[in-house]
Design a protein around this nucleic acid. Structure first.
Lengths: 137, 137
DNA sequence: TTCTATGCAAATTATTTGCAGCACT
DNA sequence: AGTGCTGCAAATAATTTGCATAGAA
């Protein structure tokens, strides 16, 4: 039984071809690791698979509920998905080429907690995205 | 000549009723100060003004280009707008009641700059949003 | 009169849902 | 037979655009 197979079962999802394929695509995307539903859909078509875009959305949403993937809403008007590694991280998005770099910083994390606490709140989630450009000089 | 009047002219926009009204609505919203296009539209209707939703979007977009307002994309599926104060700040959004609290933290700002710099990038913009809940215990 | 601004409807884009058929138990 | 899963088309939701008209300079 493959690894993907286990992940799906663990998430309480029946192992089906669309789900396996979509999981594979998410896992194989080493570079940008942040794909839109349409990106995934096009990769499926390119691989000769016959799945509908609606199924891609359904599967990605199920994966999100299952905690397998994380959905981000960068300021681009559409969602992007990445495989959840379990470890939290923030993002740096290059506005020139769309490249996404992940990072975490303990000092920032700690400050956030303190700011919320001082205001009488506890943090449920947070999103920090830096929109950056390669330095020239 | 009113204050709004000046702001519009300074932005190179002709002073028209929809623009004035929309600016007023943004300014008068002391509490939440983060309105969606539809919120603004409904306030206009409630005030008896006859403007189309399309105009609201056009005006808000123009205001954004002019630097008068800032558009945010919290994870809600639609944009919200706030009057630009000139000073940068981040947001804490209460997931229970939607309340928005603004804050800034120099330590976080500085860390961000350093993280980007270390990676060879300069920050063009950034967005930090904490999704929080009121503490109980 | 010339150029900008606006309302309304139609078009787009991203995403979701209804439904009939197929697959697996 | 029953329940879950899928494709396709239709439905939504947010936002944008085309166009003919109304207004201001």
């Amino acid at each position: 039984m493959s690894l993907q197979n286990k992940e799906l079962r663990k998430a309480g999802l029946k192992v089906t071809l669309p789900r396996l394929k979509i999981l594979e695509i998410l896992e194989s995307d080493q570079s940008a690791q942040h794909l839109s539903a349409d990106d995934v859909y096009r990769e499926l078509l390119a691989a000769g698979e016959d799945v509908g875009l609606a199924t891609v959305y359904r599967v990605l949403t199920q994966f999100e509920s299952a905690g397998l993937v994380i959905r981000h809403n960068f300021e681009s008007g559409h969602s992007v998905f990445e495989l959840s590694t379990g470890e939290h991280h923030d993002h740096m998005v290059c506005i020139d080429n769309g490249e996404v770099i992940e990072f975490t910083d303990q000092i920032i994390e700690e400050r956030q907690r303190k700011i919320a606490e001082d205001a009488g709140y506890e943090i449920v989630d947070h999103a920090l995205t830096l929109y950056v450009r390669k330095m020239v000089d």
